[in-house]
Design a protein around this nucleic acid. Sequence first.
DNA 1: GGTTGACCTGA
DNA 2: CAGGTCAAC
Length: 317
Amino acid sequence: MASVWKRLSCDGDVLNLGITLVCGQAFRWKKLNNEEWCGVLSGKVWTFKQSSDGIYYKVNSRLSEVESTTQNESILNDYFQLNIDLHHLYDHWSSRDDNFKQVAATISGFRLLRQDPVENLFSFICSSNNNIERISSMVEALCVKYGGIITEVNGVVYHDFPSIATLAEPQVEQELRELKFGYRAKFIHETAKILMKKCNKDWLISLREVPYEEAHAALCELPGVGAKVADCVCLMSLDKTDAIPVDTHVWQISCRDYNIPDLKKSKSLTNKAYKAIGDHFRQLFGKYAGWANSVLFSGDLKKFQDSKVNYIQVSLI
DNA sequence: GGTTGACCTGA
DNA sequence: CAGGTCAAC
């Protein structure tokens, strides 16, 4: 479909695309140039551009599909969770924590995306003991191998994320081994098979309606899903805004910068330490603690160091 | 219960 | 080692 730029009015400090799309919560957004990002959402190909007067977007869909601006804006409002008042939350978190206040000054407009639980879950099964660059290429490989074609934009073919049913097919584990997924090949295949038994993706979606602890425990039953991955899924696609994923990085910074009882005693990230960190930040930041924590730690992500340096350099000139 | 090492791969 | 998970002490 031919597409034109449409404007979604919101300021940069309400939604900062550069930080939000590239911080490691979702792995399929590609930066086209300094201002534009492109990727797949809700079965369509979207191109975004950040401007001083809002976000501009273009949509490319399957040939048969008819575009509705109302519907597209609804998709974006849901995905970017624009109904959530970020200013109010930043103010609240800043009032609770001086360290947050400092970090927040360099990271405005960061939002959690409301992702599709299927893509979110399988992407983070890939994340264990892995780096963001390879996670991204593995997710891309899953889509190209098993996802349906959406359309072609500027010579690039875009695919949907594969269905659970496709990932549950018998040959998948071996094929993923051949695609260099390593031990994650088995986790993906086994988890897909279990989800098929649990009424496909409806079971995952239904976890949006249950309390955090229950959703977290249910996810941890899946192969390849431990406390950290389960918290990522809870936070990023199941509406658990106070879920705190604790990776090695969060653990180290927590030990260094925050005085959390019992934490300094353990030499490694034990279950006890894991829970102590989550509980500490939940008590500190409240209902949206998962969001606050993401702001706090995405700023230190290696991927961001470059853009931060650039920012400083630009301001010096 | 907490600790330890293996597990795939690639930079 | 990299944004972990699992199983065996």
